[in-house]
Amino acid sequence: MVHQHQDDYYLAIRQSTQQTDSALFIEFILQMIFDAIMEAKTSEIEGLNAGLKLSNVDKTILVFIKQDCYITNVQLAKIIH
């Protein structure tokens, strides 16, 4: 992500150096981290939904797996009936 915004990265460094205040650089890096997380989250959701036709049971199972990634098949079966 930083590589894609390399000019902005160097600008933030220069401005922080000129102002002897790292706030601009830190804000830039935090924004890059936030953007990367949002991009990854969006990609993950789109990937999960791409071409899938999930039943209500499937959706319920995914909810429980998201809540507890260590849930067992036996536990899921009891919950789902």
Rank of each mutant, 00 (worst) to 15 (best):
His3Ser: 09
Ala77Thr: 09
Phe28His: 01
Ile26Thr: 06
Met1Gly: 07
Gln15Glu: 11
Gln67Asp: 08
Asn73Ile: 10
Leu54Thr: 05
Lys59Phe: 00
Tyr10Val: 06
Gln75Arg: 08
Gln31Glu: 14
Gly51Asn: 05
Ala50Val: 05
Glu46Asp: 12
Gln75Ser: 07
Thr17Pro: 05
Ile13Leu: 02
Ile26His: 02
Ile45Gly: 01
Ile13Cys: 02
Glu27Val: 07
Gln19Asn: 13
Tyr70Ser: 08
Glu39Met: 12
Asn73Gly: 15
Leu11Pro: 12
Asp21Ala: 02
Glu27Gln: 15
Ile79Lys: 01
Val57Arg: 10
Asp21Phe: 01
His5Gly: 05
Thr72Glu: 07
Asp58Gly: 05
Ile37Leu: 15
Ile61Trp: 01
Thr17Phe: 11
Ser22Gly: 11
Phe64Gly: 08
Asp58Ser: 10
Phe28Lys: 00
Asp21Asn: 08
Asp68His: 00
Val57Gly: 02
Glu44Gln: 14
Ile45Glu: 09
Tyr9Arg: 04
Val74His: 11
Lys66Cys: 06
Cys69Tyr: 13
His3Thr: 10
Ile61Arg: 04
Ala36Ile: 00
Met32Trp: 00
Met38Ala: 09
Tyr9Thr: 01
Ala36Cys: 06
Asn56Phe: 06
His81Asp: 13
Ser43Lys: 05
Gln15Val: 02
Gln4Ala: 09
Ile79Arg: 03
Thr60Trp: 05
Leu48Asp: 03
Asp8Ser: 13
Phe64Cys: 10
Ile29Leu: 09
Glu27Gly: 13
Arg14Asp: 11
Lys41Arg: 14
Leu54Asp: 14
Ile37Lys: 15
Glu27Asp: 15
Lys78Pro: 03
Gln15Asp: 08
Phe34Ile: 14
Leu76Ala: 00
Glu44Thr: 14
Ser43Arg: 03
Phe25Tyr: 06
Ala40Lys: 15
His5Gln: 06
Val74Trp: 08
Ala77Gln: 12
Ile29Asp: 03
Ile71Asp: 01
Gln6Asn: 09
Thr72Met: 02
Leu11Cys: 05
Thr72Tyr: 00
Tyr70His: 12
